[in-house]
């Protein structure tokens, strides 16, 4: 595990109790706590990639963390183009990765 949550037990800020939630990511259950963003839940599970770039198919995930780069777009409850780093997760959210967009060519 590389990217990970700061373990509450040893975190010097002494987190108080939080509310567990579960979201579905591409059909897989992911545990988190209320107040985390979708990107926060992904990174806490060491998932760094949830999108591929439209032309080169390169892996993308969170980059700027503050809503500026749009690298982190996901589909949340059927809605495309949601910045995972800006959207607070709610219990039961259904998150899917954005499929490849079209390329009609000529």
């Amino acid at each position: 595990m590389v990217a990970r949550p700061v373990p509450p037990a040893t975190d010097p800020i002494e987190p108080a109790a939080s509310t567990p939630i579960t979201i579905l990511v591409n059909g897989e259950r992911r545990a988190g706590v209320l107040g985390q963003t979708v990107a926060g839940i992904m990174l806490a599970a060491d998932t760094l990639t949830w999108r591929t770039s439209p032309v080169g198919g390169r892996p993308r995930g969170a980059f700027c963390g503050i809503g500026v780069c749009f690298d982190c777009l996901v589909v949340v409850n059927g809605q495309r183009d949601v910045r995972a780093c800006q959207r607070r997760a709610r219990d039961g959210d259904v998150v899917e990765f954005e499929g490849p967009s079209q390329s009609e060519g000529e």
Binding site: A3, I13, G40, A44, F63, G65, C69
Partner: peptide, 18 residues
């Protein structure tokens, strides 16, 4: 993946505890 902006890494640390 694994490359973040400096501010991004900090935002994740402060705002997500990741």
């Amino acid at each position: 993946p694994g490359v973040f902006t400096a501010g991004g890494a900090q935002a994740l640390a402060k705002g997500e505890r990741v």
